[in-house]
């Protein structure tokens, strides 16, 4: 029987990595990334996502495990023999070269004729709207512009894979939003597989086809943004992605998203398909369109957070007695931890 699914762009098998004196960074990473995917490695700092990216790029060697790019085992190949380009966190533009020469560098190294490489470099700069300043040096650019040059420099070599190491980290919020849209557009347009590292869950949800959530050197869950948000595999994923309340019932953890919870007066009688919890309001935070209300349960252990439209929340004050109400199907029992 022939396997109809195409070879994945990246296949990681059993990767481990530790640095001297037993600081273990990766404890066994298995992952497949499909051709043309926008794939995000998401996790808090120190969770191993950047190390995984550096292993794929060839900047570090794993202690054990294999890395395949397409069909080829590249585990021990140096970066210059991998068909992969990286967009570095600090952009790593060469300060003594013009933007055009920066973008053309990879082609020059590989012996592409001058006329062709200049034409392709210009086209790549044009794609990120910087063709007009092609003859400037990187120091004459703003942070956002440098970041786009770094992207053009990675794209122009038409690699099988582009690695992006928190590329938007240094930008302000507005520019960040613009670049998220821009990156996604360019990824779709070129069809190149993107592997994107970030610790920003909102960014990951809005851009990715699939996401791997890292925690302490292992992958907690791999899935689409909706998988992770609606069906988290663990309490860690539930807490890391979006905000959540976790209730304990009969030894199980029940996840409740705050947007599914509403607040009613203490005398409210729940409908048959509804669940409820009485409590007192511990905190009210006005966030503009919505207001976040945190509730203490009767035993002061379980807390529930509700996010309600601000115009429905005008009456709520701290220390008021209320009832939190949610539809039965909104409560999601988290799977038991294996092992």
């Amino acid at each position: 029987m022939t396997d109809l699914s195409p070879t994945p762009a990246v296949r990681l098998h059993g990767l481990t990595k530790s640095y001297g004196r037993g600081a273990t960074v990766l404890r066994g990473i298995d992952l497949e990334i499909a051709q043309g995917e926008f794939f995000t490695l998401l996790g808090p700092s120190g969770s191993g996502k950047t190390t995984t990216l550096r292993l794929i790029g060839g900047f570090e060697l794993p202690d054990t495990g294999q890395i395949h790019l397409g069909e080829a085992d590249v585990t021990t190949l140096p970066p210059y023999r991998r068909n992969v380009n990286t967009m570095f966190q600090d952009y790593a533009l060469f300060p003594h070269m013009t933007l055009l020469d920066n973008v053309a560098y990879g082609m020059k190294v590989r012996g592409v004729a001058r006329a062709e490489r200049m034409e392709r470099a210009r086209a790549a700069l044009d794609m990120v709207h910087l063709a007009a300043v092609a003859d400037r040096k990187p120091t004459q650019l703003s942070g956002g512009q440098r970041q786009r040059v770094a992207l053009a420099r990675a794209l122009v070599n038409k690699p099988a894979l582009i690695l992006l190491d928190e590329p938007l980290g240094a930008l302000d919020l507005k520019l960040r939003r613009e670049m998220q849209v821009e990156l996604k557009r360019i990824q779709k347009q070129t069809g190149i597989t993107f592997v994107y590292v970030t610790h920003d869950q909102e960014e990951a949800l809005s851009m990715s086809d699939r996401i791997a959530v890292f925690s302490e050197g292992v992958i907690e869950q791999v899935g689409t943004p909706a998988d992770l948000y609606e069906r988290p595999a663990s309490a860690f994923v539930a807490r890391f992605i979006g905000s959540s309340s976790i209730l304990h019932e009969n030894g199980r953890d029940i996840l409740l998203r705050p947007e599914d919870v509403r607040l009613e007066a203490p005398d409210y009688t729940p409908a048959p398909h509804e669940r409820s919890m009485a409590g007192t309001i511990a905190e009210v935070s006005y966030l503009g369109p919505v207001t976040r209300v945190t509730l203490c349960g009767p035993d002061e252990q379980d807390g529930v957070t509700a996010i309600v439209p601000s115009r429905h929340a005008r009456g709520w004050r701290e220390r008021m007695a209320v009832v939190a109400v949610w539809p039965e199907e909104a409560a999601y029992p988290l799977p038991h931890r294996q092992g």
Binding site: G57, G58, F59, P78, P79, Y80, V84, N85, T86, F88, Q89, D90, A92, L93, F94, P95, H96, Y105, G106, V109, R110, R153, N157
Partner: peptide, 27 residues
């Protein structure tokens, strides 16, 4: 000199020696 400059040269296909000649030395 940020180490990422050397890595970027190798990332784009330059051997360590070539990267040294074209990036590190001019800087």
């Amino acid at each position: 000199l940020p180490p990422s400059l050397r890595e970027a040269a190798q990332d784009m296909g330059a051997t360590p020696w070539h990267g040294f000649i074209t990036i590190t030395l001019p800087l």
